[in-house]
Design a protein around this nucleic acid. Structure first.
Lengths: 202, 202
DNA sequence: GTCTATATCGGGATAGAC
DNA sequence: GTCTATCCCGATATAGAC
């Protein structure tokens, strides 16, 4: 689909996504979103009644993009180690294809965690199932005794943080070379998987 | 020092810190900072000429609070494992005593990474030394062959993320019980240290 | 140093023509 | 559906009295 064939609504959503991620909800300007989308400011209000509604639309879109690939893995019928490996790789793939999501969600976590929690619930994201599975694996001695909550948060940390903190890490470790850091993030899929698996092997 | 003995300037800085962390630079309101400090809005401008200057003051204070305990460890003369263990525990202690710092810095990373990088440089924060030390340890076979950059970023991720994402994690895993999550974070010092050390043992 | 009052401006939102 | 013009509130910032 060429740039011109995009509906106005699509152009708005994409522009809004860019600006909201860069500036956050409060820092974003409707004018800038309109400019970025190549349309008039009033049209934003025509399609979405308010800034808040536009933000929510972008937000839901981000969540939806983000989820489908993940849920399949969690409920699939493979070993814990395969599951962890697959999850980490798939999860990082999704994050790399939507690198704006981490900061977007972190900002929303501060702004209104309850609303975010409900969006997650709607999407069927709950830790219960995987928590139980880790517990069983620990009981069976398949993985080392670590509180499953810590394990989950470790995995999330290792995947999310390097993307959220990208501008600084890229500057510090790669003299601000985007291609080099991208390469680093690609390697990271295997590195994190190894790291976690080594850490929890009995 | 009682609440009353604090100078106006101190009261402003503390209030500003709270509000800036909660709302971010753009979302924060001078009025709210003034209310929170129990003073008049104009006084903010009397002490700090503008919102941006106030933000910068809070920011530098945050960095300064944050650094001293850390640097000592990096250059101390102990084994890599002891150093990692000590660093993780001390670093998380600092983060726990200044829990606003992670989001504050993450926001600033998006807003102006170059300025932040320079503030870090001023404070003497550079990854070179520890990077080299990890390399030597890998060459000697003391730790498993992992790209030292990944190792550093893993440690940072594991320490920082759970605090930055606290409101959501607390809601998901502890039914929003702050004391329970605080307890979780305290445990975490030892858990992360174990996790990392297990992951890199040859 | 601290307050009240006010200037000034930017930005979200709406009205209305086409 | 898309544009121009405009409203109006809220927020930063300043002036000036005490």
């Amino acid at each position: 689909m060429s740039e011109k064939d995009k509906t106005t609504e699509e152009k708005i959503l994409e522009a809004a996504r860019r600006i909201f991620v860069e500036k956050g909800m409060a820092g974003a300007r409707m004018q800038q979103i309109a400019d970025d989308a190549g349309i008039n400011k009033s049209l934003l209000h025509y399609y979405y009644r308010s800034k808040d509604k536009l933000f929510l639309a972008v937000f839901r879109m981000a969540i939806r993009d983000f989820i489908p690939g993940i849920k399949g893995i969690i409920f699939s019928d493979i070993s814990v180690y395969e599951k962890l490996d697959l999850f980490i790789k798939r999860y990082m793939d999704v994050l790399l294809s939507k690198p704006f999501v981490p900061m977007f969600i972190l900002q929303e976590i501060q702004r209104d965690p309850e609303r975010l929690f409900n969006v997650f619930l709607e999407a069927g994201i709950r830790p219960d199932y995987i928590l139980k599975e880790f517990e069983r694996s620990i009981d069976k001695g398949v993985i080392r005794g670590i509180d499953p909550k810590h394990l989950i948060i470790n995995v999330l940390s290792l995947c999310i943080f390097p993307i959220a903190a990208r501008p600084m890490m890229q500057r510090m470790f790669y003299a601000n070379d985007p291609a080099a850091y991208q390469q680093f993030l690609n390697e990271r899929k295997a590195v994190v998987s190894d790291f976690v698996i080594n850490a929890i092997k009995p």
